[in-house]
């Protein structure tokens, strides 16, 4: 069997180091030994095709998962999942999670004193369509304090988890909101060395995606690692 067509390597500057001391928790969790560079084999260029049977339409509308509507500013978050050549990644699972409008996760470990919202869980999932498009309806998450440094606050964000077509395209990231004054102060965001690359995580307010009299639209495209081009490709 011939060797598989490899995926492009991590883009320098666009991906964070494991050790980033301003994000204090990395100090004890980052390996000290260098990673061992290895060729991509069948084990890496394959990956889970996961969860398709379990996604239902209501999973992508986080405002309709309870009896009543959640508190907060209703938003529509949409975009495309693409590879580095700009090709859509169809039928791939996108999972999101976030705080409620007050900045509190439903997770039992979240001790922030902000109120829980009985009408909001903050978890959603969907599959991209044939053009790589996805859409979630939710409420804008709140900022919240954390203990990384004195008076530390995370900017409002939505966590995204994607699989893409292989083990190598697995991506967990966070989506931020344009104009948030907490972004430049955030050690998680600032862990990305290339500032232009970091800005790819900031969603864009989009009047086109805004639904009149109902919800603001934010656009967030996600680019996964793509394959090396092959000379034979048509």
């Amino acid at each position: 069997m011939s060797d598989p067509i490899p995926y492009r390597r991590e883009e320098k500057g666009a991906q964070p180091p494991s050790l980033y001391p301003p994000y204090v928790s990395t100090l004890k969790r980052a390996p000290r030994q260098p990673l061992i560079l290895m060729p991509q084999t069948l084990s890496e260029v394959t990956g889970p095709v996961y969860g398709h049977d379990k996604v239902v339409p209501d999973d992508s509308d986080l405002t309709r998962q309870h009896k009543g509507e959640p508190q907060g500013e209703r938003i529509v978050v949409s975009g495309r999942v693409l590879d580095e050549s700009g090709r859509p990644v169809p039928r791939t699972l996108v999972e999101i999670w976030q705080t409620n409008a007050a900045g509190r996760y439903i997770h039992h470990g979240d001790q922030h004193s902000a109120p829980l919202d009985p009408n909001f869980s903050g978890a959603g999932r969907t599959l991209t369509d044939a053009d790589g498009r996805y859409k979630f309806v939710t409420v804008k998450p709140g900022a919240y304090p954390w203990r990384n440094h004195p008076n530390a606050w995370r900017p409002a964000h939505i966590h995204f988890s994607l699989f893409g077509p292989s083990f190598l395209t697995r991506l967990v990231t966070q989506m931020y909101f344009q104009g948030d004054p907490l972004i430049p102060l955030d050690p998680v965001y600032n862990g990305i060395p290339d500032k232009k690359a970091a800005a790819r995580m900031v969603s864009r307010f989009d009047l086109e995606a805004t639904v009149p009299e109902w919800a603001l639209g934010y656009c967030f495209d996600i680019v996964l690692r793509g394959r090396e081009a092959t000379p034979m490709e048509h």
Partner: peptide, 15 residues
């Protein structure tokens, strides 16, 4: 297109 950067999964993914 440039790769979207990775960010931590954080402590509160369980739900």
């Amino acid at each position: 297109s440039g790769q979207t950067p990775s960010q931590t999964v954080g402590p509160f993914f369980g739900f």
